[in-house]
Simulated scan of single mutants.
Amino acid sequence: MPGATAATHKTVVLYPSLGMGHLNPVVELAKVFLRRGVAAVIIAVVEVDSSDTTTTDRLAAANPGITFRRLLLLPDAAAVPPRGLLQDDGRRHSHPIMRTIDVLRAANPVLRDLLCELVIDMFCTDALDVAAELGVPAYFFFTSALGDLAVMLHLPCVFPDARSSFKDMPYTALRFPGVPPIRGMDMATTMQDRESDIARACLHQCARMPEARGFLVNTFDWLEALRSGSCMPAGRPTPPVYCIGPLIVPGNPGGHNERHVCLTWLDAQPNRSVVFLSFGSMGVLICWPL
């Protein structure tokens, strides 16, 4: 793992995107760095609303070995709307993720003051500019499936050549190195309309991700496509991929350590008969007709 050898005196700064779904995995990653001998780990938390610090305070109290640094961003200074404003209301953002991207971009000036070695969230691509300016190495922490990373790295090679949006070719099999074919309808909803603001923003993020020194992925297996670098355009190598998972929050949400009843049920099921779906904080399940 980069920057995590025994008895190292380096400080690692972890920079999550907004929301608990990004902050919680970063806390688990911080614990891994500390167990591997990193002297200090700082989690830089962007906060637009200074009155809501409950989550950060709770995590800081439960993890005294981790330093939490708040990057307070006033809504007026950031030129961003208050939390909860949806992008489809016509006032500012066309999609909720667009607000997140704007907030994180506006946080760059406050981020410059505390960087030593930077590990950033997949939505924080604009922080690469800060890392480059200060000459510090930046790594992406990728908590989604490794196949998703393979698709994202290859999207800039495919999307400009697409003659129509994915929404217009729902049954067309799209081919990405290292993963099975994916139908257009099964691509992320944010990428369905190639002319939308969110699709353009996501494609910009995908194109910038290879600028990082490497990827820390919350998994224990990795794809031959990433190993060989075939996800990237010819002549451009894929940054190193470090599989550091699985990182999970120990115990039950209620704080008890007993084994959850769902695991007993899971143990009783036939091998390879259960599909686990993790929607994140904004995901929805859509069932398409076969």
Rank of each mutant, 00 (worst) to 15 (best):
G3W: 15
G3H: 15
G3C: 13
T5A: 12
K10N: 11
L14S: 13
Y15K: 11
M20Q: 14
M20A: 14
V27Q: 01
E28A: 04
V32G: 02
G37Y: 09
V45E: 09
D57N: 02
L59D: 02
L59M: 02
P64H: 15
T67N: 09
F68C: 13
F68Y: 14
R70G: 02
R70V: 12
L73A: 01
L74D: 11
V80L: 00
P81G: 01
L85F: 04
R92G: 07
P96E: 09
M98F: 06
V103R: 06
A106N: 06
A106T: 01
A107I: 03
P109L: 06
V110Y: 11
L118H: 09
C124A: 15
T125G: 04
A127K: 13
D129V: 00
A131T: 05
A132P: 00
L134C: 03
G135S: 05
P137F: 02
D148V: 08
A150E: 02
V151F: 01
M152G: 06
L153K: 03
P156S: 10
S164F: 15
S165G: 13
K167W: 09
V179S: 03
P181L: 00
D186E: 10
A188L: 14
T190I: 08
Q192R: 05
Q192S: 04
D193T: 02
D197G: 13
R200M: 06
H204L: 08
C206F: 15
P210S: 07
P210M: 01
F215P: 07
L216H: 04
V217D: 01
T219A: 08
F220K: 12
F220D: 14
G229V: 05
S230A: 14
C231I: 10
P233N: 08
G235Y: 04
P240Y: 00
G245Y: 01
V249I: 07
P250K: 14
G251S: 14
G251V: 12
G251E: 13
G255D: 08
R259N: 06
V261G: 09
L263W: 15
L266W: 14
A268K: 08
V274P: 12
V275H: 09
F276A: 10
F276M: 10
S281V: 04
S281E: 07
M282P: 00
M282A: 12
G283K: 05
I286N: 14
I286V: 14
C287G: 06
